[in-house]
């Protein structure tokens, strides 16, 4: 079933690839009321792991201070796309790309751009919570520490604001100097969110932040995302379509490395333009 669809899709895409993206762009531009101007802009972005192509001609405009969800089945390239934004893919030796990504109209691949300063502007939360083997306090202010900030008043304030923003403050305020590894799974993930926002980044990337959490912890994180979008532009990758529907303003659907459809979440979930999207969100495959 999946294979069949697969073949069909590649056939159709080959002819309509170009027109597709134009269509998508059109659709995006019609949603002007929520997209005052593109914040993160993917331009004909292709991505390769060695000889294997993971992303095909992605053109995508992500707006500021909105939650953008990227959905799709496993291996469709949504995580790769996310990790391209803070150039985490640099860690992969064999990774190459063509096309460009612009943040505030500045290319991420500009040779003059220092990747460290880039990552300071972009926070990231990973699928598996990865607190450092340090105290809760030190975990939160890690990005400030590596940036060279050692002033206690600033650090204290950053800890309090970020932990409050990530709804963890009340639970840990009495044990800030205990090891972060003693927290529960949900708390650890919220700690990672606090860590990601401590340095006041502009963009927050979330790579399936709830996939390892139980429903209650998930609900807390989702609530948090809702709160955080007032301050940050959030891009969230998720497997969970209900989650995308609940938290996001915009949703992009990926299949086999291609952006199939991108638009307002309500529209995409209730009245998708593409058959693949329809099939995926109704649970026919994926």
């Amino acid at each position: 079933m999946f294979l069949l669809l697969d073949e069909k899709k590649t056939n159709t895409k080959r002819d309509t690839g170009q027109s597709m993206t134009i269509e998508v762009e059109k659709r995006v531009s019609t949603n002007k009321q929520e997209l005052n101007k593109p914040f993160i802009q993917f331009k004909d972005f292709n991505f390769f792991y060695g000889a294997k192509q993971a992303l095909f001609d992605v053109n995508l405009n992500i707006p500021e201070k909105k939650v953008t969800a990227l959905i799709g089945p496993s291996g469709c390239g949504k995580s790769t796309l996310l990790r391209s934004v803070n150039r985490m893919n640099d860690l992969v030796d064999v990774a190459t790309h063509t096309g460009d990504i612009l943040v505030k109209e500045q290319s991420l691949f500009d040779p003059m751009l220092e990747v460290i300063s880039l990552r300071k502007r972009i926070g990231m939360v990973f699928q598996k919570s990865n607190p450092f083997p340090k105290s809760i306090y030190e975990n939160v202010i890690y990005s400030l520490r590596v940036a060279g900030c050692n002033k206690k008043s600033i650090l204290d304030e950053a800890v309090e604001t970020s932990l409050k923003a990530s709804a963890l403050w009340d639970e840990v305020k009495d044990r800030l100097h205990e090891s972060a590894l003693g927290l529960s799974g949900g708390q650890m993930q919220r700690l990672c969110i606090a860590r990601a926002i401590a340095n006041k980044p502009e963009i927050l990337l979330m790579d399936e932040p709830c996939s390892a959490l139980d429903p209650i912890a998930t609900a807390k994180i989702e609530e948090l995302i809702f709160e955080l979008k007032n301050e940050f532009s959030i891009v969230i990758v998720t497997h969970n379509m209900q989650q995308a529907a609940r938290v996001s303003d915009l949703t992009g659907f990926f299949l086999l490395g291609k952006l199939i459809e991108f638009g307002r979440t309500e529209t995409l979930f209730t009245n998708p333009n593409e058959k693949e999207t329809q099939d995926y969100i109704t649970g026919r495959f994926g």
Partner: peptide, 13 residues
Amino acid sequence: QGSREGSLACGAS
């Protein structure tokens, strides 16, 4: 790898 990525994503060299 998670710890390494977490650190790098925080802007650490």
